[in-house]
Design a protein around this nucleic acid. Structure first.
Length: 538
DNA sequence: AACAAGTCCAACCGCTCTATT
DNA sequence: GAATAGAGCGGTTGGACTTGT
């Protein structure tokens, strides 16, 4: 880029290059009064650097300035070389294969851009990072899942394999250990989910929003204050994860389900797909009938045929977006939450970390369900007592940090992993969605644009927006799941534990037959008017 | 055509890790 | 073992570019 720099023929130092002070790597030069240049590189500088590397090879970057006359710090030289000058760099847009690989790698590694770049010859970590960040923003705006379902499923399987192999470590340890394998899939087994996998392959994704303490954090934050708008967006995304704790049936600390019932503000419910004005649509519509009614909020030129954004539906209900924005500003709550400061891989943005946590929760739920309906005073000891694997206890302790493992926004993760609000009990029927009291379900068609094998025919789903849009990806890919909503119900019940699970199943299977397909969002909170009656929402 | 909003991306910054002294 | 330097990584920023109104 040569946007602002005056490019001189010698290219080494132009008149606007000496304004910035030396940074930390200019130490040697600082003593000699040499001011290093910052900002865009000129072609002459590039040439000097290339020439230098040809002669001396890579590395020892701080020597570049000394030996080549280039007024750049070593760090800058390294970056320039690595990102732009080194041979075999691939320029231009990512190919479809690369995009898919990036997503797969991110599902496994999280924001480990450098390691991801190692899997993409010719691509730089910066490039991948930029791509991912823009993609995240896009998809979050659109309320779409970041990962395709099979990635989550694959991650689960890999994690199970690792567990079988006896690789079992806690926090950072397992992280590092797994790095050696090129993957960072935690050795996690979802005990409570194993039994369901044959019929519910995507259940493991549900725990994405199960970070137990997130409930308190999220709720607390709703009542307290939002993050200052000055907070960086990425940070807000990270902090936002706790908001989805409400999904967790196993509640840590003193927060009770009743509390949630009484106190949960609309903003909490909305991302769950509970709060949107949902209107039953009695008139079965064919996908065609919607024609162009589905408004796509995707920027032009950004959702090309090869764009990963086509994973999910491209329909992006605005309310959800607003919700996302609101939620990502929510700070970590204080008070009842165990705010351990201990760093945890759960902040790494790893999908596997979520799975890991989910497993822990699953263990906990299996044994604490009898107590949890009214009281959330489940202690690690309680969990350990009934946990089938010691890992549960250990990891619970290790993960005293209630923060989510994810580096993504809560909404996005919820979107990724929660088949909420799937409409009607089957695609074939496309029955109007009946919902809980006070809520109207508005069915809208969602055009499925993405499938693992891209050539696959697309499917139009009627889902209750907005979160249903997110679920549609999985619905499409698991016909059994789609056709038999009880699968989902059972799975969610399993996740919720005995008490909440049975309650959930009762509500789902009993009171509202047609709402089965709605999943947790529409059913489990059936009796939560404070949450559900959102008819005033846009 | 002008402006605003959104997007992209190169580069910087701060931090951590590792090797060396 | 402590201090220091170098290298690398991930997060963030700022400005050019693109698109929409």
């Amino acid at each position: 880029m040569s946007r602002t720099t005056i490019e001189s023929d010698d290219g080494v130092l132009s008149k606007d290059q000496t304004e910035s002070p030396l940074n930390d790597e200019g130490g040697g030069s600082a003593g000699r009064g040499i001011v290093l240049k910052k900002g865009p590189w000129t072609s002459a500088e590039d040439a000097i650097l290339i020439d230098y590397v040809k002669k001396h090879g890579e590395g020892n970057w701080n020597a570049v300035q000394k030996n080549s006359g280039l007024f750049r710090c070593g760090k800058s030289c390294r970056l320039r070389w690595a990102n732009h000058l080194r041979p075999n760099l691939k320029k231009g847009a990512f190919t479809q294969e690369e995009e898919q690989l990036i997503v797969e790698l991110h599902a496994k590694m999280g924001n480990k851009w450098a390691r991801m770049a190692a899997h993409l010859p010719g691509r730089t970590d910066n490039e991948i990072k930029n791509y991912w960040n823009t993609r995240i923003k896009r998809r979050q705006r659109a309320g779409l899942p970041l990962y395709p379902p099979e990635l989550s499923f694959q991650a689960l399987h890999e994690s199970q394999s690792q567990n079988i192999n006896g690789i079992n470590s806690g926090d950072k340890g397992h992280h590092d250990l797994l790095q050696g394998n090129g993957y960072e899939i935690p050795d996690v087994v979802f005990d409570s989910l194993k039994a369901n996998q044959s019929v519910l392959p995507y259940v493991p994704e549900l725990p994405d929003i199960t970070a137990s303490s997130m409930l308190m954090k999220g709720l607390g934050s709703q009542y307290c204050s939002f993050m200052p708008p000055t907070m960086h967006r990425q940070k807000r995304l990270r902090e936002s994860m706790p908001l989805f704790a409400g999904y967790s049936g196993r509640i840590k600390n003193e927060f009770t389900f009743d509390q949630f019932h009484n106190d949960v503000p609309d903003k909490i419910a909305r991302p769950f797909g509970l709060s949107f004005p949902l209107e039953p649509d009695p008139s079965p519509k064919t996908p065609e009938s919607f024609g162009g009614a589905v408004k796509l909020e995707l920027p032009s030129l950004q959702y090309t045929e090869t764009d990963l954004g086509s994973w999910g539906t491209s329909s992006s209900p605005q309310p959800l977006l607003e919700t996302v924005d609101a939620f990502i500003q929510s700070p970590p709550p204080t008070g009842t939450v165990d705010d351990s400061d201990c760093p945890s891989p759960r902040n790494s943005g790893l999908l596997d970390a979520l799975l890991h946590e989910a497993k822990t929760l699953g263990c906990a739920k299996n044994h604490s369900s009898d107590k949890s309906s009214n009281s959330s005073s489940v202690t690690p000891a309680d969990i350990a007592d009934s946990c089938t694997l010691n890992i549960c206890e250990t990891e619970w302790e290790d993960y005293g940090d209630p923060l989510s493992p994810l580096g993504h926004s809560a909404t996005s993760l919820f979107n990724e992993c929660t088949p909420l609000s799937a409409s009607g009990s089957s695609l074939e029927e496309q029955a109007p969605v009946e919902t809980f009291v006070g809520c109207k379900v508005k069915s809208e068609p969602v055009e499925q644009a993405w499938s693992p094998d891209r050539g696959k025919e697309t499917t139009n789903l009627y889902v209750s927006q907005p979160d249903a849009l997110l679920a549609s990806d999985w619905l499409e890919q698991d016909s059994a799941y789609v056709k038999d909503p009880t699968i989902m119900t059972d799975a969610i019940a399993t996740l919720l534990g005995d008490d909440l699970g049975s309650e959930y199943k009762q509500m789902t299977m009993g009171s509202s037959t047609s709402s089965q397909g709605l999943g947790f969002g529409a059913c489990a909170w059936n009796n939560m008017p404070a949450v559900c009656q959102m008819s005033d929402l846009p």
